[in-house]
Design a protein around this nucleic acid. Structure first.
Lengths: 233, 233
DNA sequence: ATATGTGAACCACTTCACAGCA
DNA sequence: TGCTGTGAAGTGGTTCACATAT
């Protein structure tokens, strides 16, 4: 009756498991960003306080996170920027680029295809695919839009394992099914629907409109003077 | 030495506090989405299992979340779609639109300006602002780009309290300072930097490149024949 | 029979506080 | 002295399981 059995597997980091806590994994990219910045400023070493400052994470949390990677700091000194960077890059698999296929060449899709921040952070969009035959061949950044019918070939030949879904909501589930069928095992979903995928496929959801709604909730509670003009004093 | 004293305010929902748990707030938009969909399919009522199915949240969690809004279901039957929708809309302040200013008319900014999903979900972009004088006047969707120098006027005159920052990383903090100075109290930050804002200002961060890095981590782990982990949130 | 609402148990994560080490 | 690394305590959130209501 309930949604899913949801295998109660060993989630945490059990002894022989090299896995990191999910919350830690989600923050490693932030540390990487901060370290890259620090390095470009010439810093050789940094403290957990500095990392805290530039990521918004508490310093105790920074230390705990980094300790999961092993001990790489020097007491009384801090962390070696280059070494830590390499360590984190290694942990999250950024020693090489990941090939990504982008599905959906609408406004959002084309904006992402042009975004330079992916390449510098470990992901390379190697194909832009759209369902509309009229769009096929059109240039987006330095890629030509390809037909969604070629998904399987694209995915296998270009060693793609991660996909970005930037289609309208009603197309997203179908696209996801095709992607999974073609061998994709990680999906970043920008469409405002929950995707149903088989066990073993990871989905991360980004929904900008929902984020605004969350902000609106807090805004409402602040009693923001939005209607002050109408309220008599 | 550590980062901040971080006033230990009553975070949870204390008795006289109408506040909801953060995790619940973050899911209300999902329920709203699902209910809108269900209603358009003609459903009069729905169960927590149906909501679970269409949001990816467990049914127990759905019930717990909804119970925070008060008891609005009927045992043995489920929830009245329209009534629940109204209840949630009320709770997250979607009974009317929130005016939003978008800063940064680059690829991502213009894509968001054209996105129809905001209006239908409680947010209306009422201004697009850019720092580049050459872009001012240019049409984006049905808005003309305005100068960032007019931020304060725009924000006060159009009753804006929420902003989207879609600028390059190095400009984001300056823009955030300007926004806060002009009276904005909620920021959705799409730039890949942590924003420093005063107490009372809410920031939500969306970083697509970081999401891909998180997926890459799990992807890397799948490479080895070990039991795979499930990604959350 | 069916589905909600909820205390209690459980779990993941964060923070605290200090021991350990350069 | 200064900063890391980490057990222990604390917090918030999820899941369980069942009493409760229709």
């Amino acid at each position: 009756m309930t949604i899913l059995p949801r295998r109660s597997r060993l989630t945490g980091a059990s002894s022989s498991d090299r896995g990191l806590p999910n919350a830690t994994v989600a923050r490693l990219p932030l540390y990487l960003r901060a370290l890259t910045q620090l390095r470009s400023q010439g810093s050789q070493t940094c403290s957990s306080d500095q990392l805290a400052e530039s990521t918004g994470v508490s310093s105790a949390n920074v230390r705990k996170d980094l300790s999961h990677l092993g001990s790489h700091g020097t007491r009384g000194v801090g962390y070696d920027v280059d070494h830590l960077r390499a360590e984190i890059a290694q942990a999250i698999g950024q020693t090489q680029d990941w090939n990504v296929v982008l599905v959906g060449a609408g406004n959002l899709g084309t904006a992402l295809a042009a975004y330079p921040g992916f390449t510098s952070r470990g992901s390379r969009i190697v194909a832009v695919v759209d369902a509309d035959p009229a769009r096929v061949g059109e240039q987006v950044g330095d890629l030509a839009i390809e037909s969604i019918d070629h998904l399987e070939t694209i995915i296998t030949e270009r060693a793609v394992s991660i996909a970005i879904v930037a289609t309208p909501g009603q197309a997203a589930q179908t696209v996801a099914d095709q992607l999974v069928g073609a061998g994709v095992t990680s999906i970043l979903n920008l469409a405002p629907v929950a995707l149903r995928v088989p066990e073993g496929v990871d989905v991360r959801q980004v929904d900008v409109a929902a984020e605004l709604q969350i902000l609106a909730y807090h805004e409402q509670r602040k009693g923001h003077p939005r209607e002050e003009a109408e309220v008599s004093r």
